[in-house]
Amino acid sequence: MAELIDLVLLGMLAITALRIIFLKDLFAVVMLFGIYSFLSALIFVNLDAVDVAFTEAAVGAGIATVLMLGTLALTGRKEKANSHTALLPLLVVIVTGAALIYGTLDMPPFGDPENPANQHVAPRYIEESPQEVGLPNMVTSVLASYRAFDTLGETAVVFAAAIGVLSLLGLPKQSQATIESGLKSHLVLRVVAKLIIPLILVFALYVQFHGDYGPGGGFQAGVIAAAAIILYALVFGLPLATQVIQPKLLKILASMGVLIYAATGVAGLFFGGNFLDYNVLASDPVAGQHIGIIVIEFGIGVTVFAAILSIFYGFASQAERANIQ
């Protein structure tokens, strides 16, 4: 059954991808990309990767699509006809694809529990992490403890992206509420948004602290919290949003999150362990793991929230600027 669903979803992905190639209307291209992203999130659920599905839906279908639409608002929605020939790209793609198909021929069969990938390193995560780290969600254990250095790097990548967008687009200046923006005339939308935003924020907190037991964690929580403010900015206008969360504060928050994470790692050094060793943080190793994971997940949440929101501010301030002109 799972295989059948998988096949159907993959088929839909293939159709979506093909459609994107030939469409010239960029707005439709971006919307189709959002669909592509949602479909892959479904595939991830079907393949038991619930954490990944959560992230893909929030990031790929959510944030990435919003940013793409924001860009289109500034650059125009029509793609001009391609003047150069598409023969060379086609050739490159066919050769690369053929190489990949050749590579699949010695791959282990799909779904087989005896595959090398499921045999060597992974069994320890499945069998021992609930005792060693003390969390039921193995993905969180691996993410935040066994491979915590990857995740520190990931937080740094988000921080780097915020630096990049900040340097390119800058941040909006505070409180220029003189400009008419937002959707002032849509009363229903305003009321619903006011109702829904607190709920989204509470949900973000839930996702933040429930990541140890179910799907979720700092990253998803940060994205959801940022989405709440983004919704606020879309409905009530950027100037009001920048009064709620000031752009200057975001810079500090984005830095603080990375520092919280790294400081947890450094704390391990002072207690006689290696960098990012949580066992030494408390007298009982499992309690130490728990402290460590909660603190670093908080750090991730803070950086991701601040980074995503400042990236959105960057794009939105450009849009306002374009509107004034």
């Binding site: 393949l47 954490d51 992974a122 691996v142 491979r147 990931e154």
Partner: peptide, 11 residues
Amino acid sequence: SNPLPHVLILT
């Protein structure tokens, strides 16, 4: 299912 690829892809 194997959690390791999930972690890698989250990143």
